[in-house]
Every structure is written in C-alpha cells, then in structure tokens.
Lab assay of single mutants.
Amino acid sequence: NITNLCPFDEVFNATRFASVYAWNRKRISNCVADYSVLYNLAPFFTFKCYGVSPTKLNDLCFTNVYADSFVIRGDEVRQIAPGQTGNIADYNYKLPDDFTGCVIAWNSNKLDSKVSGNYNYLYRLFRKSNLKPFERDISTEIYQAGNKPCNGVAGFNCYFPLRSYSFRPTYGVGHQPYRVVVLSFELLHAPATVCGPKKST
C-alpha cells in the first residue's frame, strides 16, 4: 500500500533546468501520483496529453512515469509533440509517434532571462542524422558540413554543433524561455507502482 506522493514538485520547481540537447530525465515510481497538483503548480502555457485524457490521469496506474525536463524558446514548444519536425524535434528531443503522456510548458522569462542575455541554455544546431525517439546526444564533436574532414577544428564548413540561446527579458514571447516537462507513461507487463490517489488504497 503506497502512500508517499510522487515528487513532481522537485521536477517542476527545480531551480535550474537542463539545456534541451542534454535534457534531464527523472524516473518516478512507487508513489501516489496526484496530477491535479500539477494544474495548480504554475499558470501553464501548455498542458497537452496524448493517448490519455488529462482529467482521467488520477484514475490510472502505470509501471513507471518518466519526467523529462529542459528549456526551449516559446515558438519551439509546438515541436514537443508526436510527429513534429524542426531543429528541436530533429536534433535535441524527439517524441515517438505513439507517445503516451503529457507535455507541460510554461513561460520562464522571469527566471531564465537576463538583461545582458542568459547564454547558459544550449541547443544542438547541427547533426548528421535525426534523433530516434527519446535519444539523447550530448556530443560536442565538430560538425563537418563540407567534404573536407574537420579534424576537430572549427572553421570553414566545420561547425561547433551547439548554439546558445541568449534569453533577454525584452524579447518577444516566441523568443522567451519556456520550461518544459514531458511526462511519459510506461505500461509494462509488470506491477503498477505509480497510481492516482483513488487507485492507491
């Protein structure tokens, strides 16, 4: 009989979030998941669920729940959905087409922007091929755009693959930082360890 609440607040209220290319994953298990708490945590810009209804979450049980978190800019949030393409979905964080879970995003301009520009958040701009779903690539190998090998040196047709967002508070919403948490629900042929409040007794 599990009584402890799932530590969603640790994920959502973390002081620092990860850069999207090096997104963070927390496995959540053996706890009571009260998803209604999430609705009250922040004024969400996005709370979209796929393959599951957000209002039914509190009635369900899962084997595992994974919470992935990272920062992107406002106009990239739409890429965090099944079947999307674009720089983020292709080279940084890719959801599977049959994704079961929820994408939660909110504006973090007050936390993640600086007047002089916050350069701490990076994204991958160049990659030889698209990522597979939930693949994480943290390599910093020089990207070869031409025929000549780069031998690890940046220059003509040889690019450092990561680029930094420079978040400034005066930017338009599309270029402001957004914190994203992706909850993916895993149903294996194994005992369910993460249940809503109704199912945990």
Rank of each mutant, 00 (worst) to 15 (best):
T3A: 08
T3I: 06
N4A: 12
L5Y: 11
P7T: 09
V11W: 07
V11A: 04
F12W: 03
F12N: 01
A14T: 07
R16C: 08
F17H: 03
S19M: 02
V20F: 03
V20A: 05
Y21P: 02
A22G: 06
W23S: 04
W23I: 03
W23G: 04
N24T: 14
I28E: 01
S29P: 08
N30L: 04
A33Y: 15
D34C: 06
D34M: 07
Y35F: 15
F45T: 15
F45M: 15
T46K: 13
T46V: 13
F47S: 07
K48W: 05
C49H: 00
G51L: 01
V52A: 06
V52N: 04
V52L: 11
P54D: 09
K56R: 12
L57G: 05
N58H: 12
N64L: 09
V65A: 11
Y66Q: 07
Y66S: 08
A67V: 10
A67Y: 03
D68G: 01
S69T: 09
S69V: 03
F70I: 00
V71D: 02
I72D: 01
G74Y: 03
D75V: 05
E76V: 00
E76I: 00
V77G: 02
Q84F: 04
Q84L: 04
N87F: 11
A89S: 07
D90K: 10
Y91R: 06
Y91G: 03
N92I: 02
N92T: 03
N92Y: 03
P96A: 05
D97K: 09
D98I: 04
F99R: 00
F99Q: 00
C102A: 00
C102S: 00
C102K: 00
V103C: 04
V103P: 00
I104N: 00
S108M: 03
N109P: 03
N109W: 08
N109D: 09
K110R: 11
K110L: 08
K110A: 13
L111W: 13
K114N: 15
G117L: 05
G117I: 05
N118K: 10
L122H: 15
R124D: 06
F126P: 02
R127V: 04
S129V: 12
S129C: 10
S129Q: 14
N130A: 14
N130W: 05
K132Y: 07
K132E: 12
E135T: 05
E135D: 07
R136A: 05
R136N: 04
I138T: 13
I138Q: 09
S139Q: 07
S139C: 06
T140D: 09
T140M: 10
E141C: 07
I142C: 07
Y143E: 08
Q144M: 07
Q144L: 03
A145C: 08
G146H: 06
N147M: 12
N147S: 14
P149L: 09
G152Y: 05
V153Y: 09
V153R: 14
A154H: 10
A154C: 10
N157V: 05
N157D: 14
C158S: 04
Y159A: 09
F160I: 10
F160W: 13
F160D: 11
P161M: 01
L162W: 01
L162N: 05
S166R: 13
F167Y: 05
F167A: 06
P169E: 12
T170C: 08
T170D: 15
Y171F: 13
Y171P: 11
G172P: 13
G172N: 15
G172C: 08
G174A: 14
P177H: 01
Y178A: 09
Y178Q: 05
Y178N: 06
R179Y: 05
R179Q: 04
V180K: 00
V181A: 01
V182M: 01
V182W: 00
L183V: 02
L183F: 06
S184K: 08
E186W: 08
L187N: 14
P191D: 14
P191Y: 07
V194I: 10
K198D: 12
K199H: 15
K199Q: 14
T201W: 13
T201M: 14
